[in-house]
Amino acid sequence: MPEQPEATWFRDTFDRVRTEVQKVIVGQHDIVESVLVGMAANGHILLEGMPGLGKTLLVRSLAKSLSLDFSRIQFTPDMMPADVTGTNVLGEGRMFEFRKGPVFANIVLADEINRATPKTQSAMLEAMQERSVTVGGKRHDLHEPFLVMATQNPVEQEGTYPLPEAQLDRFFFKLLVPYPTKDELREVVLRTTGSAEQEPRPVASREDVLQMRAIVREVPIAEAVLEYGLSMIVATHPDGSGASPAATRYCRFGSSPRGAQSLVTAGKVHALLAGRFNVSKDDLRKVLKPVLRHRILLNFEAEADGMTPDKVLDQVISFVDERDRDPIKI
């Protein structure tokens, strides 16, 4: 493999951060890698999993290893938007001054985001999209890099407000955090109940993150690969001409254009991690589920048939692969 300084630096930095995070997080390699991919791709992450699976620890460890500001917002139904964004308070000089909310950090953990009211959710989601907040008619830019990691509980509970589709679309990835295996659980128990606790060291800086994001954008993608990716996006549109049978049958809504952007960007990060200088179809296939699983809305029939977004996306991949044939028939 030829050496390319930027790519090599990217991989090294990525590996260093991953190693540091994995010192604290036992197992969950795919989740850790996906979170780092989202970070490198300048995207926000929605983590879905049962409580106690290390989501907060993951985000905290990430912030430490990147030497970034970290804040955690525990969403509750009585939380107001100002509790997220901050508010103007009367200062000592009898002047209103803006007191920044927890959203003013590089990495924000929005814990149990679906417990907040839609009003508060939308304040958070506005910050995610605009990377700024407006309080009292004044706009306040957030610090770059700005990365939101939201968690939500998959179990339907009282007092929850599911995120609307438009807001879900703003998340780059939706990651499903699995239960640890028995071996991983043993390791967790041993680490957390012993005398010595591992703490991640800072191995990258804020500038490194910004540099990584810039490098990712440089990775080229061939027309045919882009066409392939777009075919997958279009295949999720139930009423489109390129819809897959699964989408036609089980989807109410397909992916938005943001899905296509996220797919390609995530593919670029994967290409760099694989030591390549181009995006491949495999890269797109790998990131399709975390990119699209929260962007497609299934219908009642899907629920009745026990279909999940991941199953539908598997069928979408098969559908597009069938049509992506070798142009030379020998």
């Binding site: 080229p220 993608i221 061939a222 027309e223 045919a224 690969v225 694989a274 390549r276 200088f277 181009n278 995006v279 491949s280 179809k281 495999d282 890269d283």
Partner: peptide, 11 residues
């Protein structure tokens, strides 16, 4: 080849 040739030829 993970689309290396296709991309290289295009670029």
């Amino acid at each position: 080849l993970q689309d290396r040739l296709t991309t290289a030829i295009e670029r």
